[in-house]
Nucleic acid binder design. Structure first.
Lengths: 95, 95
DNA sequence: TTCAAATGTCAGCGATCGCTGACATTACCA
DNA sequence: TGGTAATGTCAGCGATCGCTGACATTTGAA
């Protein structure tokens, strides 16, 4: 599943936990966090700590893949010339 | 690339930023954070906020995929029976 | 080399983290 | 229906967030 928001992440974690038949306390122990943390994450807490999130995914056996290597930036045309970058720099130097 | 640690994440972000020929200030503005935040993230800051991280990846056009649906948990056998879950619950109820 | 841009470091600030522990609510089985 | 497990909520605490602004260092082009 594509993760774009903390809520997406929470849903993935909760689904996976249930599939593994774990309760929140047990999962919390495996990750090394409090049960409160698991509750918050599953509810889409937006300010959770990156490292804890990664540990949770690891504990649940959920690989996280970032599609680097990709040629186009968000909603840009597939061009060898980086219009976005050029415009960005132009804007910036207009001080 | 597979993301397992905050440092992995930082590397992906930095590589992508450079590929897009953006400097840290410009990227920070696009994400809506301070330049300091970009510096910290690229250095693998482990306690960064989840939502900001997701916004950064989005701004850079890096899709994040979580492999849910997968049948086996980390380092477990491929079995319909959830040994891990059973053991976990057994341990827990031994109070 | 010289100079400017890019990057990195620091300190101080208000806001929020994740934790604990207790309690409330919901789900589910006998 | 009763009772237990699972889940959710709350408050208070020390620690750390991300921000700003100034300054130091590194990088790269002329």
């Amino acid at each position: 599943m594509l993760i774009r928001t903390p809520a997406d992440l929470g849903a993935v974690i909760r689904d996976r936990r249930k599939r593994l038949k774990l309760d929140q306390s047990t999962l919390a122990k495996q990750i090394g966090v409090s049960r409160q943390w698991v509750i918050d994450i599953e509810h889409g807490h937006p300010r959770a700590e990156l490292a804890l999130v990664l540990r949770a995914l690891d504990a649940l056996g959920i690989p996280l893949d970032a599609d680097d290597q990709q040629m186009t930036s968000r909603r840009s045309a597939r061009s060898a010339i980086d219009i976005n970058a050029i415009v960005a720099k132009a804007k910036k130097s207009r001080t």
